[in-house]
Nucleic acid binder design. Structure first.
Lengths: 197, 197
DNA sequence: CAGGTCGATGTCAGTCACTGTCATCACTTT
DNA sequence: AAAGTGATGACAGTGACTGACATCGACCTG
């Protein structure tokens, strides 16, 4: 017989998500989350660095998956395509949890602090992917740009996937967004607006 | 004879930047900032929504400039080029303040909370630019992608400009980054660094 | 000029996120 | 059995941020 109920972290995650949905992020205190999980406020902060982090705990696993996925892409693939392939693979995982992703996204969309945290997690993903690309021999400005562009593609694709009722899957949205980005950046080779001295 | 010294907001901005540089963001309390500015903590929060915002107050003007700049681009320009031209114009303004931009960036680079705030400001810029593009008739996935890609280009360019000792100017870095992005998304393997004369 | 309104600031009390420190107690190791 | 370990509780403290009300020069208005 254990002294405490098991999976304290999981109970805290669950309680936090419920309360954030019920009354909103700002209107929820950490003490309330802890109480619902049968723990104390102090214990919450032993498991999560802050009140926001409880919603982003899974990001670490996602990043590991993305990095691994990208690292094992064939060398022949162009950087942007390797990035897109990794994002599609991650997207395929994500869409198995569409309902819970939708809930989570609704909570985040309702609060600026949570959006800030999400943005820095995405920036961290981009940074990690850029590192992998550099290790694969991609030159420096290109590596960062491919990673950042990939994240932009993912953001747009995710947004459309989560807000539309259509049944198209997330990897498909990602492919479409990438094609759209390629079209947008292909544009005209010689910019019309070019006030170069 | 005025009851108070003028430019309370400016004094708070100045005091905050000094203290953030001297002892770091976390080690500075709002009470200390207010005291150095000859005001009270409560007044600080009447001028700035939070302790971070004092570093980002100028972002509003930058966004207005960018939006105006983008809105007045010729209709013939491709979206991504119009975005890049607006960013170059903003970059030209920014580089007149290179030293103060460098200080500010050093403060931000040293603190994750400040990086979060910077990211959401950049996301806001992207969102505003996407709105302008849509008003110009750019279709929906393309508008968001052109704006996000533009921000990615700007981020990379700014990073290189601020960290390198070279005398190249920021608009030039932006043009190079855009060219690099075009190369990356074209699918070709990335060209060797191509510094223009 | 008297009186009233207004806007920027001060004062003060309060909430809540987050931290440091020490105690507790089941379980494990020696 | 004694000592160690790890997760938790208890508690006090700091500091960001807010709401409510007071103050007082500047600016109207009659």
């Amino acid at each position: 017989m254990s002294r405490w109920e098991p999976d304290a972290r999981g109970r805290l995650e669950q309680a936090a998500l419920e309360l954030y949905i019920e009354r909103g992020f700002e209107q929820t205190t950490v003490a309330e989350i802890a109480k619902r999980a049968g723990l104390t406020e102090r214990t919450f902060f032993r498991h999560f660095a802050d009140k926001r982090e409880v919603l982003f705990w899974g990001a670490g696993a996602l990043q590991e998956f993305l990095v691994g996925s990208l690292a094992s892409a064939p060398d022949s693939a162009a950087p942007i395509d390797a990035v897109a392939a990794a994002l599609e693979a991650a997207g395929a995982l994500l869409q198995e949890r569409r309902e819970s992703a939708w809930q989570r996204q609704a909570v985040i969309a309702a609060n600026a602090e949570l959006q800030e945290r999400e943005l820095i997690k995405l920036a961290s993903l981009a940074s990690a992917m850029a590192d992998v690309l550099r290790r694969r021999g991609v030159a420096d400005p290109a590596a960062g740009l491919a990673a950042e562009a990939g994240i932009a593609v993912f953001r747009i694709a995710f947004e459309r996937w989560i807000s539309e009722t259509s049944q198209r899957d997330l990897p498909q949205f990602i492919r479409e967004s990438l094609d759209e980005l390629k079209a947008v950046t292909a544009g005209r080779s010689s910019p019309a607006a070019d006030p170069r001295p």
